[in-house]
Amino acid sequence: MMDRLFALVGVAVALVAAPFLKTVINRTKAAVAGRQGPPLLLPYRSLVRLMSKGAVYGSQTTWIFRAGPVVSLVATMGALCLVPFAGRPALVHFEGDILLMAYLMGVGRFFTVLAAMDTGSSFEGMGADREAFFSALTEPSLLLGVAGLGAITGSLSLSGIYGKLGGSAFLGSNLPALIFILAAFVIVYLAENSRIPVDDPTTHLELTMIHEVMVLDHCGIDLAFIEYGGALKLWTMGLLVSGLVFPGGTGSLWLDVLLSLCCLMGFQVAVGLVESSTARLKMGRVPLLLAVAFVMSTLWIMWVVR
């Protein structure tokens, strides 16, 4: 019961605090570039502003264009409920919940892509196409990485895996395996959340965009849903990655929460540093990066399966 309550609070915190992750990344980038950076609460302010606006829809769009943002936001919320926080079980957990999480994000992506194609615009078609292809290439890394974690911990649910990782009994001989899985997950994270070097969220040229070009024609409440859904995805996937660095397990609830949050924020700082220090890849080279992620997500088999 206490676990459920804690998980519920965790989801609530995520729902409130997720947009702040964007601030962390943007402030890091600003600090590296020597700029002052945006106000801390800018993501919230823009959400409120978007929520209060009307909308212009493409004349050819159908209900799918309007439903896309809602479905993707709801699907991300579903995924959020499955991810454990601070080594405590998630709100819902069962054997194979990673599949539901991955496929729920798939549902969200499916509708985002369809909404983009609904406009009939070439730009959005381009983005849709790239998003669909790149995500198809990242999925094996995520699922195989989790399989590796399962093989290390002997558990099949995300909550079981992250709960046991905290025991640190699995370090030692499995450490290289964990490091490779972590590396694969970082690339998956960058690709899934449209960050540099896969996609540039701040670019201004439609031809080179992936995620941003898909949502060019969304505005008002719909855009707010998309932005908020994106923030929730940063949080959800961020927990998967940062949980590998610090999964919890100090014994004290407050210390666990504090350290986990620090890890999550620290990871966003790292993402900001990556974004500041690398350029985005040429579109044709992105599949290579994703292939690297896949290879790294397979390497655990050398340490774990003997």
Partner: peptide, 27 residues
């Protein structure tokens, strides 16, 4: 099995995004 199922799933999604998106959406 896991790695191929995942890749197949992702590409199948792409095939049907193409089917639905080009047949039923746009002009």
């Amino acid at each position: 099995a896991i790695s191929s199922l995942a890749l197949v799933g992702g590409l199948a999604a792409m095939a049907f995004l193409k089917a639905y998106g080009t047949v039923f959406l746009g002009f």
